[in-house]
């Protein structure tokens, strides 16, 4: 009996390929859809106003130091643009209502919920995701402390936590453990690995975030 389950041998499509495929299909359909009552105003910009959409428009984002370009409708959130259009999948979609913190990214150095910001609002800003927390194979001290302290279980919330924690330590390298914890108030871990995270925070604060 062949138990081979290597990914490449599997028939069908991977989850990511499926999402990518449906995303492309959605884009193709959406370009034909008009918003009733506003067709006449499409792309009609004046001296004091830029009008964008409702069809897909070109979007350039600076993500982790690289300029990335795609086409999105105005309603696409920064999270969906990053994950489904630009394949930057570190930020996770969990509550999608600005509550859980799994989608946390830094915009101009400040942690925000990417699920609740329109992608168009992030144009011209510097976006930093969990993918930036590794440099030439060397892990940033924050995720490294998570590894050393076993501060994750399922790991789905981890990219949001490490970005939020990096933001606190970037803003104040001398932050106390209590200040770091305050900076994580917008993130939730449903596995409840807070105790191990406290160990990681303690180690990081002793080392000045390094």
């Amino acid at each position: 009996m062949d138990h081979s389950s290597k990914r490449g041998d599997r028939p069908g499509v991977s989850r990511r390929d499926f999402l990518r495929g449906t995303g492309a299909a959605a884009t193709a359909v959406a370009s034909l859809v008009k918003v009733p009552g506003v067709e006449a105003q499409e792309a009609k910009s004046g001296a004091d106003v830029v009008a964008i959409g409702p069809g897909p428009v070109k979007l350039s984002l600076e993500v982790n130091g690289t300029t990335m370009t795609t086409n999105v409708e105005p309603r696409v959130t920064l999270l969906d643009a990053l994950r489904n259009y630009l394949d930057v999948t570190g930020c996770k979609k969990v509550c999608d209502r600005g509550t859980c913190g799994a989608c946390t990214v830094m915009v101009d150095g400040k942690p925000i919920y990417s699920c609740t910001m329109l992608a168009l609002e992030a144009e011209g800003k510097k976006i930093r995701t969990a993918e930036s927390l590794i440099d030439g194979g060397k892990l940033d001290p924050v995720p490294a402390a998570f590894v050393a302290c076993d501060a994750q279980q399922c790991g789905f919330c981890t990219p949001g936590f490490v970005v939020a924690m990096r933001a606190v330590l970037d803003a104040n390298p001398k932050a106390t453990p209590a200040e770091v914890e305050k900076g994580l108030a917008g993130n939730i871990c449903r596995c409840g690995t807070y105790e191990q995270m406290r160990h990681a925070i303690e180690d990081l604060c002793k080392a000045g975030g390094k």
Binding site: Q41, V49, V50, L118
Partner: peptide
Amino acid sequence: MDNFVYYRPK
């Protein structure tokens, strides 16, 4: 979410 036209006034 419904789609919309996005305006960026100055």
